[in-house]
Each structure stands twice: as structure tokens, then as C-alpha cells.
Simulated scan of single mutants.
Amino acid sequence: MQLVPGVRRVGNDIVALHLIETPAGITMIDAGLPGHWPDLLAELAAMGRGIDDIRGVVLTHGDSDHIGIAERLRRDHGVPVYVHTADAARARGETTSHASGGSMRFGAVLGFAAYALRKGGVRARHLTEVVEVHDGETLPLPGAPQIIGLPGHSPGSVAVFVPSVDTVFVGDALTTRNVLTGAVGPQPAPFTDDPVEALRSLEALSALEAHHVVPGHGPPWSGSMADVIRQARA
């Protein structure tokens, strides 16, 4: 599904991964759940592309619903997987989050759990190798994605800014659809390690010349970075 020119989504508003399409190849942002593999193949086919066109996977953080098919791509197809050094251990399964989810609504939780189960969430494989990155790096991948540190949701949570598609991918630094309550609009994401730090970190987005915000959960949001930060903090 095309979100904006050059950006495609695999998955839905509950859990998704995203593809940046360029003539030089594809950069994947996050890796969803294991069951997204056939969905990825179908999306690539619709684009007239294949697995070999994927040049790299950039993880916004190392949680299980963002790493789903990353190890399969790395192991079977030699696709490098990039993650912030502070989340490398989490992506390898050496550490995990014990953060609380906060408020819940039965219908939203049931929908999230059912989708995650259907897409193999309990079978997520951790990475055995990663390429560690740091705040401020521009990666040697299609679209020249830029890493912006947004610690809080996890120690190595990042945004990935791709100027060529006017889009910043924020992972779980914020959400536009809370998977536990169903509430929509820019807001803090559940299961955040340090909610205060997460909100403070959003200031790093304020200077970006981007007009599209794409989270790991929820629909894309368009507008100024000042507006998305203000709404998330409200």
C-alpha cells in the first residue's frame, strides 16, 4: 500500500513495516512480525521488485513486533540490519522491556492480540548479527536515511528521516493509534521504558523539514513537526 510517493506499507494500523522505494533499491524501516513475510513478497511483486532489491533494514528499536522478519532477511538473503547501539542487545534478545502498557480497552487489546497471533508474533526471531548505528548518522542505503536518537520508549529508540520522501519514521517514539486503547492521533506509545524522557526526546524532531510522520502503529500523519510534537505532549 502506497502511503506517499516512494513510501509503501506492509501490514496495517496495528503493526506495520515500511518500504522506501528508489531507483537504487529499497530500504526497509522496521521488520514487523514473522507472518508479514508473504505480505512483503506480495507488496514487492506489486512494485515489480523482489527480495534482492532490499538493500538494508533499519530498526527504529529492538522490540519483538519490529524485528519479525529481519533475521530471515539477514540470514537467508544477506540483508544487513541496522539498529542503534543502545538497542543492539534488545534486538539480539539479550535484554527486554518490562514497561507497563497503561490504560486498556478490551476491544482494542483483543484486536491487537488477535492480529499479532495471526501474524506469528510469538515466533519472532531475534537477530544474531546487527550493524550498530549512532545518532546523527546518514546510512549508506537507498534514500540516504538519517538516524535521529529518540531515547525513552527504549534506550536506542530512533526516528529515521528520509528527506527524499519528505517523511520521518518514528517507530514507537510516538503513535497515532494506541494498540491498547484504540485512541487515534499523535500520542505517547504504550510499553515505554521512560515516558518522561520519550516526550522530551521529541524535541529532536522540531527542526526537521518533513511533512509526513509514519509510526510503527497507526496511520500516517501529515503536518508540521511542531504540531505533531504538541499533540503528542498534550
Rank of each mutant, 00 (worst) to 15 (best):
T95E: 04
S224R: 10
G25A: 10
V133N: 05
F106G: 08
L19R: 06
D52T: 14
D30H: 12
A113C: 10
R105M: 12
V130L: 06
G6R: 07
P220R: 13
L17I: 02
L33H: 13
G107D: 11
P5Q: 05
A16L: 01
V4Q: 11
I69E: 09
G182I: 04
P23E: 12
V83H: 06
L205N: 00
D227W: 02
V168G: 00
A70T: 09
A207W: 03
G182K: 11
N12H: 10
L208I: 02
I26H: 11
F191D: 05
H84N: 15
G25D: 04
V162A: 00
I69H: 09
T138N: 07
A198S: 13
G218Y: 03
R72W: 11
P190G: 02
I26E: 12
V15I: 14
H18N: 11
D65A: 13
A204F: 00
T181N: 00
A234V: 03
W221P: 03
G48E: 10
Q231V: 08
A42K: 10
V7R: 12
G11Y: 05
P219D: 12
L141V: 11
H36W: 08
V79L: 05
G11L: 11
A42C: 01
A113E: 15
H212T: 15
D135H: 13
A86W: 09
P190A: 00
S201C: 02
I26R: 13
A70C: 09
S154Y: 00
V4H: 07
P34C: 13
R125A: 14
A42M: 01
P23H: 09
G62K: 14
I51L: 15
L33R: 08
R74A: 15
V81K: 02
L150S: 02
H36A: 06
P163Q: 02
L44I: 04
P140I: 12
W37A: 04
A108L: 12
V15P: 01
L139Y: 09
S222E: 09
V15A: 12
V15E: 04
T22E: 14
H98Q: 14
D172L: 10
S103F: 07
A86F: 10
V4R: 12
I67N: 03
I29W: 02
A16S: 15
D87H: 08
H61L: 07
V10W: 08
G102L: 11
R105A: 14
S100I: 04
G93R: 03
R75T: 14
I67P: 04
A116G: 07
N178M: 00
G218K: 01
G68R: 11
R233P: 02
Q187I: 02
V228I: 10
T27H: 15
D52W: 04
F169C: 07
L117F: 11
R177F: 02
L33F: 05
S164V: 12
P219V: 08
H77I: 09
G136H: 05
A159Q: 00
A16H: 13
T138R: 15
A198E: 00
V158M: 01
I229S: 04
V109F: 15
L59A: 11
L208Y: 01
